[in-house]
Simulated assay, not measured.
Amino acid sequence: MNAPLPETGKTVLSAIPSGPVPVPRVVAELAGRDRVTPVWRNQLGGLTFRLEGPGGVRYAKWVAAGTPELDLPGEAERLAWAGRWAVVPRVLELGADAEGAWLVTAEAPGRSAVEPRWMADPATAAAGIGRGLRLLHDALPVAECPYDWSVERRLPRADERVAEGEGPADWSPEHRHLSLEEARARLGDPPPIDRLVVCHGDACVPNTLLHDDGTPASHVDLDSLGVADRWADLAVAAWSTEWNYGPGYDTILYAAYGVEPDAERIAYYRLLWDLT
């Protein structure tokens, strides 16, 4: 998962760690005598560990100090809010010190859609992800959501990245033919809202957990959760099936969600994702 897919050239930077992972001091202290297993490394260097012992299973997410894109207090707030209507991890502890910040949650039901069980049956997994995303969008009340993930809220981050020197070489292959000016101009003309929902904010394949029969179980990594057009989630969720499973599973996800592909909105929200 941490290499370019031959069909797309897309590099997936978040992955299950494949080699030794140093355990941060605070994670070791939180674990005590529990067994510590690294289970995920995201593209910004954040680490997630499984802590397993006689008392059960917990998950500890840790980010180094000075990583502003990873807002663990914000994620803890969003988990507590979303947990009133959807199945998400329950927050157990939140803290920070000079080395980094951490968030400890209880185990949520299901297995990540990138675990070997689902990598071997991607069609069933893609359908479960689509159904799970629809259930999440239908369950979370827009009128009561205090969080915003709209285009207007996200565009300043695109401008920041351009100012920091990021450009076409850092984008997905399908966008590298665009100049900075062309890409930014396209983002300045968003399509009309299809349906406002409370979006997951990172509805990529690994963040849906599935029951053994392929039905949706829970969602994780909701640090960007907020109100936006549902295509902000849909476009990226379907895109990520290509990164993780290969081509051809996006249509399964759309069908399971209950929507026909919308080429204009898919193109827009994928470009916005790339630049933000």
Score class of each variant (00 low, 15 high):
Leu92Tyr: 10
Leu79Phe: 02
Arg154Met: 13
Leu103His: 03
Ala82Ser: 01
Gly100Pro: 00
Arg117Ile: 10
Gly83Asp: 07
Ala86His: 12
Arg84Ile: 11
Tyr147Glu: 04
Glu99Asn: 11
Ala80Gly: 08
Gly83Pro: 00
Trp149Ala: 14
Trp149Phe: 15
Trp81His: 05
Ala113Gly: 09
Val151Ile: 10
Arg111Lys: 14
Arg154Ala: 13
Trp85Asn: 08
Ala82Asp: 00
Tyr147Gln: 04
Val87Lys: 11
Pro109Ser: 07
Pro122Arg: 10
Ser112Trp: 06
Gly95Val: 02
Ala86Lys: 06
Arg117Tyr: 12
Val114His: 04
Pro122Glu: 11
Trp102Ile: 04
Cys145Phe: 01
Ala86Phe: 14
Glu77Lys: 12
Cys145Ala: 10
Ser150Glu: 06
Pro146Met: 07
Arg90Leu: 11
Glu77Asn: 08
Tyr147Trp: 06
Ala123Met: 13
Glu115Asp: 15
Arg84Val: 11
Cys145Glu: 04
Arg111Gln: 15
Thr124Glu: 15
Gly74Leu: 01
Ala108Tyr: 08
Arg131Thr: 15
His137Lys: 05
Tyr147Gly: 01
Asp138Ile: 07
Met119Lys: 15
Trp149Met: 12
Glu144Arg: 13
Ala98Val: 11
Glu115Val: 08
Ala143Asn: 07
Val104Tyr: 08
Ala108Leu: 04
Pro89Trp: 02
Glu77Pro: 00
Glu107Asp: 13
Glu93Gln: 12
Pro146Gln: 09
Pro73Phe: 05
Leu94Gln: 07
Ala127Cys: 12
Gly110Val: 11
Pro109Asn: 06
Arg131Tyr: 11
Val104Phe: 05
Glu75Cys: 00
Arg78Asn: 00
Cys145Ser: 07
Pro122Gln: 11
Leu133Glu: 09
Leu94Thr: 05
Leu136Val: 10
Arg90Asp: 12
Asp121Trp: 12
Ala98Phe: 04
Leu94Ala: 02
Glu75Lys: 02
Ala120Arg: 15
Pro73Arg: 06
Val88Trp: 02
Glu93Tyr: 05
Ala82His: 00
Thr124Val: 15
Glu144Cys: 01
Ala108Pro: 10
Leu135Ser: 14
Trp118Ala: 08
Leu72Met: 01
Glu75Leu: 01
Ile129Cys: 15
Ser150Arg: 03
Arg134Tyr: 10
Leu155Asn: 09
Ala98Gly: 04
Trp149Tyr: 15
Ala101His: 04
Asp97Asn: 07
Arg131His: 12
Asp97His: 02
Leu135Asp: 15
Leu135Trp: 13
Pro122Cys: 09
Ala96Asn: 03
Ala143Pro: 00
Ala86Gln: 13
Ser112Phe: 04
Ala113Thr: 05
Thr124Cys: 15
Ala125Phe: 10
